[in-house]
Design a protein around this nucleic acid. Structure first.
Lengths: 191, 191
DNA sequence: TAATATGGAATGAACGTTCATTCCGTATTA
DNA sequence: TAATACGGAATGAACGTTCATTCCATATTA
């Protein structure tokens, strides 16, 4: 019987190594060593490296959703929802920097491009929380009359860029700074 | 005598292939074929792949400076300077999408991290145009009282993110959209 | 001028290394 | 004991880089 905890060890090891060294700097053999399993064992849990990478991404997405959604309500005012999601995202990434770096690696690769194409153009059954927020912001005329994707860029661009600098140690993001950046982003998207 | 145009061909080929396939998806052999030279010839012009990659980045930086600086004056009002640089940067990247993608690849790699560390922490002799703009904006109390790097993130985060979506074909950045995004970024950084 | 010699640029096959993946003998489980 | 999981050596493909050789523009010679 395949053990779930061995699978988790492999995923954890892959996350750590890929976050630090990138996809090409994290060979399967190295992942195996860090996970404390044989190289061949990985292939009992994941068909190949691509599958492992994509699986890791999917689980990460779930983890993020679980982290940011509690306390979030589409009934609240747009501005409050915006601040909630932005702040929680910042907090998540600061608490889990390896996860942030993994996401960065993923998005800046063919994996990420393909995934994003699916998400934006594809007919997803359940709409993204963020999509929904910007749609509502537009409908209520609280946000600037810009394409939703642009509103996206205006709030997540600074988030990602500043997180990167935080992780590299160039700036330090404490709660106050997070709040001020979020406010500045709001100034950017609000009408 | 080593021919400059052969060197240029190699740089051009490397730019195209790395922009499209990433550092690891662009083998030297492939670069050689596209440049129309023998594989070994590259090593007559560049010590190794790392040197080639860094040289390409440095030339790209020069090209950008030459593109955005004409018509720019530190004597003008902060807001005008901000709009000038942002707009020119957008235009450059839209006109030269391969260059944008190369920059992206570079920044999301150990090359970029090392480079950025030097630039931010190092004692550069000449100050960056952008650094200077934000310093002036702070001094004149026109911009929000935030660390310079944060102001940076607030304006370049959206630029980079929206350029990425533009290149992937998810949005279309025309002059009007550029202006509106730049305005929104200004709303983000202005006091 | 014609014929030959020279030296550096260009070449691409070959090398050593690294990697993802497979294979199979052993250990573990039921 | 039979079936399944495991480990890590083996494999072959792909890569960056090297180097013995070829090519060619120029210099030298007769």
């Amino acid at each position: 019987m395949l053990k779930p905890d061995k699978r988790d060890e492999i995923l954890r090891a892959a996350l750590e190594l890929i976050a630090e060294y990138g996809f090409h700097g994290a060979p399967m053999a190295m992942i195996a060593v860090r996970a404390g399993v044989g190289a061949g064992t990985i292939y009992r849990y994941f068909e190949n490296k691509d599958v492992l990478i994509n699986e890791l991404y999917r689980e990460l997405e779930d983890k993020i959703r679980e982290y940011i959604l509690p306390g979030y309500s589409t009934e609240r005012p747009i501005r409050e929802r915006f601040v909630h999601l932005n702040t929680k995202l910042f907090r998540f990434f600061i608490e889990f920097p390896l996860q942030f770096r993994y996401l960065e690696q993923f998005h800046n690769s063919p994996y990420g491009a393909a995934y994003r194409r699916d998400k934006i153009l594809g007919e997803s059954d359940e709409k993204d929380v963020f999509m929904r927020l910007f749609e509502d912001g537009l409908a209520q005329q609280v946000m600037k009359d810009l394409p939703i994707l642009i509103l996206f860029c205006l709030s997540f661009g600074p988030l990602i860029t500043s997180m990167r600098d935080h992780i590299l140690g160039f700036i330090s993001l404490d709660d106050i700074m997070i709040e001020r950046i979020t406010e500045a982003c709001w100034d950017g998207v609000k009408r």
